[in-house]
Design a protein around this nucleic acid. Structure first.
Length: 669
RNA sequence: GGCGGAGUAGCUCAGUUGGUUAGAGCAUACGGCUCAUACCCGUAGUGUCGGCGGUUCAAGUCCGCCCUCCGCUACCA
């Protein structure tokens, strides 16, 4: 590993500035922060890079809607990300914005180099294009309505024919595959690695990396009418953060990255495929580890951005503070702990405020906080408020501590924060049990001062070690624990390797104890925001007509737009009511139904991709609305002679039917 | 449909190369303690380890088939 020779370099993705940060992005950033803090404890020079992705053309749209100048708009959002990260005790070293000159210059350099090397070539693109998503679609990807296939977008596509620059991704497929096979830890977790291999096997196509300029984004060198595709631009930030291309000596010290960490949605296509191929084309080393973590889900669905159903981390920390009475800084640390503790890293996890709060009580308040409190309090009562001078370790106890430190360190090195915290909290439990076994209150009553000193010294040693272990996750709380046991040092500066050694708590007077993580009262635990929501939904489902439940609205482009059509355009459509007289699934497909419909006297075959919403049987006898004059299209060997209209609800097709039965073949206008 | 993953105590999950009575945490019940944040400690658990069949002295662990869920991918006129 390059870890021993150079600056350890870790990155978050640059966040897309279309909404505020939520606990999903917080998970990525907090994890990077934890690993960085751990590296620092190992004495490594580190570079932790995060930032914002600001060049998407969607930005203009969002800015316009917000009635703002695009530049000011992104300034505001970038500032909000920075504010949030500071709030969460994130110590990033560099925050890159893709609108900065250093980034733009580097992107130009990449583009020019690859153009000279023949990895970027000019070509002609003809097909469908979604402006909002900056994405091209093949004919086969596009429905007859010519709307964006992305269910969260759905805006009308534009038929374009234009000159574009292409990155020769296909040329790197074999090399990339071989590299992945040769480097088993390169892509993680392993099941994602397999997805990438499958993706490559299926064939990589050259990627169009320029777009017609809309006045926002990074211009193609020498071609002011074009801008560089936002992903091709964004990934370069990792090089820029490492000092490329202007500071080669710095770059040599930092590159390659040790860890790129990101959510799974941008792993396969971009970080695990396009990015390594770009680096190969540039003749650069590939990062050590590219790691995709899972999502916070809500009811099994992805939470976050567009849905806006995941809390802002600042709000969640405030909620913890409010319910527990802990101060805000400590609540933030608690949130950091809960984020990594409530998730099996790499997999999705169901977000539950109740689960977070319960774990706050059980781990932080009852176990760790109370251990600190009872230890200090007993020292106050039995030892005149002093940490006793170092005492010998109980049998095997020092090894217990030392082994836990090693285990946690190994875990943090392997991006297993969860395991690391388990090791720390095992010590907490062990110590609570130890107190019970020794019963220092009885030792004191019996006047066995030496036994009391031994017992409590062991508690303080445990607390010291635990504080040192949790410091990467909870830096403020760790400092607070250390101060509470009379130590005058900064845990961030204590080398990890030295932590496990027994006997590092000198005799010191103790401040009077204040609960570090105050317990959340049980009655408040039941009154979480989601429980309130749940009871509301319950009431709603009791109502006779559940269909009256309000559904979240789908965003629609502002009305008078350049995609409006004339009444003559509309007249070209021949919409008819048809009776479904037969229907069966198309073999070997999961979405296709084969309908036989009656249209006046005529019968037709229609294929429709609605099998995920409807069974064949339930459609028979229904009336549907079809486009009758659509060009026939053959699929799976069957000619589809029309198209059924359906509402698109998050990708689910809900068919449109006449309000009352009408004669078969009736026109629709 | 193809490829991959998962199905273990009420919940979240561990279970190395097959080996004794299948584990942890949380939640529950009972007991103990009283230093402490009504905390902590102990005890008790319940499990057809998704189903069926097979290999083996021995299978949660290997093989085959099936069911359910998830991911990637194809299909969506």
């Amino acid at each position: 590993m390059s870890l021993d020779k150079k600056t350890a370099f870790i990155t978050t993705p640059i966040y897309y500035v279309n909404s505020s940060p939520h606990i999903g992005s917080a998970l990525t950033t907090v994890t990077c922060d934890i690993i960085t803090r751990y590296w620092k404890r190992l004495g490594k020079p580190t570079l932790f890079l995060t930032g914002t992705d600001e060049n998407a053309t969607k930005v203009i749209e969002a800015a316009t809607r917000a009635g703002e100048d695009p530049k000011r708009f992104v300034d505001g959002l970038a500032a909000e990300f920075q504010r949030t990260w500071r709030l969460l005790h994130i110590e990033y070293d560099d925050f890159i914005r893709t609108t900065e000159p250093r980034h733009i210059a580097a992107v130009h350099e990449v583009f020019n180099r690859l153009r000279s090397s023949g990895d970027v070539v000019k070509g002609l693109y003809e097909g469908w294009y979604c402006v909002a998503d900056e994405t091209f679609f093949r004919d086969s990807d596009v429905a007859e309505d010519h709307c964006c296939p992305n269910p969260e977008c759905g805006k009308p596509l534009r038929r374009i024919q234009e000159e574009s620059w292409f990155f020769r991704l296909s040329a790197y497929a074999d090399r990339l595959k071989q590299y992945i096979l040769d480097h088993p830890n390169f892509l993680q977790p392993e099941f994602r690695r397999n997805e990438v291999l499958a993706f490559i096997d299926q064939g990589l196509r050259d990627m169009s990396i320029t777009r017609s300029s809309t006045g926002w984004g990074i211009q193609v060198p020498d071609e002011p009418d074009k801008v560089i595709y936002v992903w091709f631009d964004a990934l370069v930030n990792y090089l820029v953060g490492a000092g490329w291309p202007d500071h080669p000596e710095r770059f040599a010290e930092i590159w390659p990255a040790d860890i790129h960490l990101m959510g799974k949605e941008i792993f396969v296509r971009f970080h695990a495929t396009l990015w390594p191929a770009m680096l190969m084309a540039l003749g650069m080393e590939l990062p050590d580890i590219i790691y995709a973590h899972g999502w916070w889900t809500i009811g099994g669905e992805k939470g976050g951005k567009s849905k806006g159903n995941l809390p802002h981390p600042g709000d969640l920390a405030a909620r913890i503070a409010e319910l527990s009475g802990a101060d805000y800084e400590i609540s933030v640390d608690a949130l950091r702990y809960l984020l990594i503790r409530e998730m099996q890293f790499g997999l999705d996890a169901e977000y539950s405020e109740t689960a977070f709060l319960q774990r706050f009580n059980s781990d932080l308040a009852n176990d760790l906080g109370n251990l600190l409190n009872r230890s200090v309090s007993m020292a106050g009562r039995y030892l005149n408020g002093m940490v006793p001078p170092p005492q010998p370790a109980p049998d095997g106890y020092d090894h217990l501590l030392n082994n836990a430190v090693t285990e946690a360190g190994d875990a943090l090195g392997a991006i297993q924060m969860n395991t690391a915290m388990e090791a720390a909290f095992r010590l907490v439990s062990r110590c609570n049990k130890y107190i019970d076994e020794r019963q220092p209150w009885r030792q004191a009553r019996e006047g066995d001062d030496q036994a009391v000193r031994e017992t409590l010294y062991t508690c303080f040693e445990t607390l010291r070690v635990v504080a040192m272990m949790v410091q990467p996750v909870m830096p403020v709380a760790a400092q607070r624990i250390i101060s509470s046991i009379g130590l005058d040092l900064n845990p961030a500066e204590v080398p990890w390797q030295s932590v496990g050694k027994w006997g590092q708590c000198p005799e010191k007077p103790l401040p009077s104890p204040i609960p570090l993580f105050p317990r959340i009262p049980a009655n408040l635990l039941n009154r979480t925001t989601e429980n309130i929501q749940e009871s509301q939904t319950t009431n709603m489902s009791d109502m006779p007509e559940p269909s009256t439940q309000p559904l979240p609205a789908v965003s629609v482009a502002p009305f008078p737009s350049n995609s409006t059509i004339t009444i003559e355009d509309f007249a070209k459509l021949e919409l008819r009511v048809a009776d479904v007289i037969d229907c069966k699934p198309v073999p070997n497909t999961s979405k296709l139904l084969h309908l036989r419909v009656k249209l006046g006297e005529e019968e037709r075959d229609i294929l429709s991709g609605i099998a995920e919403t409807y069974t064949a049987d339930e459609l028979i006898g229904k009336q549907v609305i079809i486009i009758a004059n659509l060009q026939p299209r053959k699929m799976r060997g069957i000619e589809s002679q029309g198209m059924i209209l359906a509402a698109d609800m998050n990708g689910q097709a809900i068919i449109l039917v006449p309000e009352t039965r009408v004669p078969s073949g009736s026109p629709v206008r």
